[in-house]
Design a protein around this nucleic acid. Structure first.
Lengths: 239, 239
DNA sequence: AAAGTAATTTGATCTGGAACAAACGTTTTT
DNA sequence: AAAAACGTTTGTTCCAGATCAAATTACTTT
């Protein structure tokens, strides 16, 4: 059994003791853009398109990415947001079912698919990763299927507060600690709208409403200071 | 590498050649309701609740189940429909994130979690299973976030037509073969509504509309004869 | 088969969020 | 620094789907 505390896939290489792992994973980076094992992306670069051949896995070392799907008429749904430590590039079939695009500058660790399938340890790690993503997707399904616009945006904001994302804000806050946090959205209003199943206008209106209610302050367009985390939390529909 | 054509987890036991598998999986059933390795459920029986301790995996051998989540005020979202060959009971944490309920009579194969984690072959199978569920969830995310009621119900009906569920109905149909199929919903209107993020009334109205348009015939409440599969397919928003 | 119960359909009205439109900020280009 | 381009906010109108309310149909039970 792999330790439950592992949080980085790329840390596995040094220790993977059994089977597979014919190659050494960590390599010096720098040979151009895709240096064999590391890759850099600028904001809005596409890593792969839906329908592309799936032959590599990636781990986000730095930055934020999104997975999305398009309908033929151009409607878009962002299905997942990937942050540091998250993996992407899994596929059931030969081809990707989503497009992967960078939201910010991104640094990736690159793995060939066969590197994974020959190492039980890595497979186990991938498994945990999939399970965690599945749980997030279940939560998001509830958001899209059953929550109001106010609840959606509040849930989204809470997901950006470390350690409060999932089922945070249970009960009153520790004495002395201010119930306050500045979060980076790393997404435009359009991207947030496409993630939350809303329009850009509705996202903007809800943010304005939260501002008016004194729960948040918009510092820069993509940086929000939450002045009352618990207050936002009460609006997520989960309490 | 495990053969890509495996479709049943419970078939693995006979062949699993390496490691783990200290026990023989298939056992005679019949000792009461939960016979160690098999389990039967009646329609609307709950297999496990959200928050229950997660220590077993299940494979659906017969029947249909659903996974759902509830909000504190009673709103429900069905997040996944499980059919023959599907697995459930995965969990990232110690506890289940969803409730699992039978929609019809169900027969399950039961596995202890540690049986899985000690067999790389089974882990690999579980992995494929997770990836397939992930892909379905991505599709469903698009449905919930971006599709109209008509598109949602049409997509749902198409998912019940074997081999046409995902990206079916590409181009014209083979000569001679009638573009027709009777499908069992195995769900009430309320369950369908909670799956599609709609109300019971909207689901009913869309079904009536499809009936009026001559695309389907409602044979029994939960049995629908699709008289023009291609016609329904055109309404899914994916063509 | 009749009575009772539950699920579904249909009708009428209401409303949250979409769509359209314009004004306002912010960043980039020249 | 002015102009252009882009993203965001705010205002107005509209409509798809929710909500509320019966009526109808399908199952159970007796």
């Amino acid at each position: 059994m792999v330790s439950a505390t592992l949080t980085k896939f790329s840390d596995l290489d040094g220790q993977a003791p059994f089977n597979g792992c014919q190659e050494n994973f960590k390599q010096p980076d720098g040979i151009g853009k895709n240096t064999g094992r590391k890759q850099r992306l600028s904001a809005h670069d596409v890593l792969f398109y839906e329908g592309d051949k799936a032959e590599r896995l990636y781990e986000v070392l730095r930055g934020v990415m999104m997975l999305y799907k398009l309908l033929p008429d151009g409607r878009r749904q962002v299905v997942y947001i990937l942050r540091e430590g998250d993996m992407l590039g899994f596929s059931n079939r030969e081809f990707f079912d989503c497009t992967a695009e960078a939201l910010t500058e991104v640094e990736l660790q690159v793995f060939e698919s066969r590197e994974i399938s020959t190492s039980p340890m890595m497979q186990h790690y991938v498994n945990r990763c999939l399970l965690s993503q599945m749980e997030t997707l279940h939560e998001h399904t509830v958001l899209l299927g059953r929550k109001s616009a106010l609840e959606r945006v509040s849930t989204f904001l809470m997901s950006l507060v470390p350690n409060r994302g999932g089922h945070g804000c249970s009960g009153p806050i520790e004495e002395g600690k201010p119930d306050t946090k500045t979060v980076a959205l790393s997404m435009t209003r359009q991207e947030i709208a496409d993630y939350l199943g809303l329009t850009i206008e509705t996202v903007s209106r809800v943010i304005s409403q939260l501002k008016r209610r004194g729960l948040i302050k918009v510092e820069k367009q993509d940086s929000i200071h939450i002045t009352n985390i618990c207050g936002i939390c009460q609006l997520t529909g989960m309490h």
